[in-house]
Design a protein around this nucleic acid. Structure first.
Lengths: 342, 342
DNA sequence: AGAATAGATTTGATCGATCAAACTACTATG
DNA sequence: CATAGTAGTTTGATCGATCAAATCTATTCT
């Protein structure tokens, strides 16, 4: 196969220099429009594409985002990460960015990967998912001046407004609150909450949503709410066991922090008790489980906007752009379904 | 932040030339071991990492594989792609390759993306998933001399042994045959098959597995088998409706081409009828559904082996390596569970 | 001893693009 | 009229690595 055309080839055909070709590509406004058209015709004629590696070498930008591919420990909810990744890839492409994957066994390994990819000039920025308390990854990235954005807010309280930490998150509080209110409006009076143990920021946030809705919509006392509140690790059988441990008749509906737990709740509680899950996974769709849907396309768009500004095609240096917003909280919405199962 | 060290910097510290440093990295054997150690010490001391863009520009290799991220139209079975991607990323990393994602709306759009990424020297090779009859993508890649491997065999009969088309696939015939034989061994006599309409190569292959097992393990006539065979689009409700259309008592077990269909079958057939699914998705695990597990790590390893040879770190030109194997069929295995549902 | 050979390392050129500065042609200004 | 200014374009240098060929050194052969 013949050598691919270069800027020089295009220039020769168009009767201009290589730099003018480069200008047509990168700063079209400074080129006389007549010349620009000649060059564009030559580009089309030769089927020219800029060589990504050469451009990256010169500009010191890779136009690539790194993102860790989670191992599928999440079970059913893995599709959330998957859908987010898809949305991110699509929208990044529109902005001229590529997505590069990596894996890591634990946070420290992940930091090692950051270092590798960063030093190799492989990526310009990282997108992190599943942040947690005192996340060492974000500390490292900030300390080493590597641009990044997280899907998930920083859960150490002080960090929420750290201008160096860009984040997008879904307002789980609002989502669970809406789900709970929906159940109350449908006639439930004692909505149980099936959540995660409280070391999870995300879980605590969703729990507050349930508690606030219950406090506002019922006359139950805090102590009574405590009895409706359960915490367990994620999983179908864990959900089932948790609901079985409740006294029958002590609750008439359940809100869960995940579809896995919700599926377990359905199995234990039977057809008469309405259940609402979280994440709107394919399973929820399959069995007719109402669930809180995270607007992942919006999250992806938000992440890119924080990194690149509303329209740009370049990663901004956040230390020099104090006016840009630093975080974004998007609202999920409840998808109501009628049960197909049991 | 200080400029990152280059080969020249390393050479200065080690007291050798830049090319020797390069040799230590790329052809360690030609460097005297004493010198090699000095250079390696300098590399460690400076924390040197080769610049990926510079290397790629010079070598004309990106050390990157492109893979399309499927939209989650697959519902429950999306996790298969996800797990494959994870295994691929991990093993590619071990071989010094990175994985770059892209999306496409249809096969022609995908071809356009191939062209873009290829011309930009962004990727060296592609990994394709979900091949189908007369796939235009593989034709294009072969015609344009772009290395690739597919997860899924080419379903046009002549193509199966095309030495230019590298492929890995899971032996669905064997998986479904094993599943069917298992049900027969457990006492079933009339195992129904819930498959896809016959324009799908994968589906046909799995159907043959069931038919062969039934022919070998029962004395049912072909006409009787026809009555146990169903075809429908994928989905839980489709599976449920298909099973409901069978006369009750006309079957005593079901094998399905997917976990989605299997879940539908369970809902329709009730607790007494054993059902086996395919893909071993998180849902199967959650509800205690037996299912055929695809060994995706093996598939990923096989894909890389076909592209790069058993140990290499470079993509081979398959036109010049007639001795390397061109495809690989891996055997899935049945995961037996006891039902947790209904 | 002198030449040939292999082993180890260095030097110059190059990959394809962009940056920075220089140049050209033409207009505006005192 | 000469000088400065500006828009548009070109030339030389550079990013960091590897390739190809040259150089140097030690060893072997006739």
């Amino acid at each position: 196969m013949a050598r691919l055309p270069t800027v020089t080839d295009v220039g020769r055909v168009a009767g201009v220099s290589r730099q003018t070709v480069s200008n047509v590509l990168n700063s079209p406004t400074i080129v006389k429009s007549e010349t620009r058209e000649k060059v564009q015709a030559a580009i089309a004629q030769l089927g020219y594409r800029p060589d990504a590696s050469a451009r990256r070498l010169r500009t010191r930008k890779s136009s690539t985002l790194g993102i860790r591919l989670d191992p599928m420990t999440n079970g059913i909810s893995g599709s959330v990460h998957d859908r987010f990744l898809h949305a991110l890839t699509e929208q990044a492409d529109e902005r001229g960015l590529r997505i590069m994957l990596f894996t890591a066994t634990d946070p420290n390994d992940e930091i090692r990967q950051f270092s590798r990819m960063r030093d190799g000039a492989d990526v310009d920025a990282f997108v992190l998912t599943s942040t947690f308390y005192d996340d060492p990854r974000t500390e490292w990235l900030i300390a080493n001046d590597v641009p990044f954005v997280t899907f998930g807010r920083p859960w150490g309280i002080d960090d929420m407004n750290d201008p160096l930490h860009l984040w997008v998150d879904v307002d789980g509080w609002s989502g669970v609150r809406e789900a709970t209110a929906h159940l109350l409006a449908e006639g439930a009076t004692r909505v149980a909450f099936l959540g995660w143990p409280s070391h999870s920021g995300t879980g605590d946030d969703r729990r507050r949503g349930w508690r606030d809705a219950m406090t506002a919509g019922t006359s139950l006392t805090p102590a009574q709410l405590d009895e409706l509140e359960m915490a367990t690790e994620d999983g179908v059988s864990q959900g089932r066991d948790a609901i079985r441990s409740l006294a029958p008749g002590s609750f008439d509906a359940v809100v869960c922090v995940s579809d896995s737990l919700a599926l377990g709740a359905i199995l234990a509680a039977g057809a008469d008790i309405p259940v609402i899950g979280y994440d709107n996974t394919p399973v929820a769709n399959a069995i007719g489980l109402s669930s809180v849907e995270q607007p992942l396309a919006e999250v992806a768009a938000g992440a890119l906007e924080l990194l690149m500004g509303p329209r740009g095609a370049e990663i901004l240096d956040r230390t020099t752009t104090p006016d840009e917003p630093k975080h974004r909280l998007v609202k999920p919405h409840l998808v109501v379904r009628t049960r197909q199962l049991s």
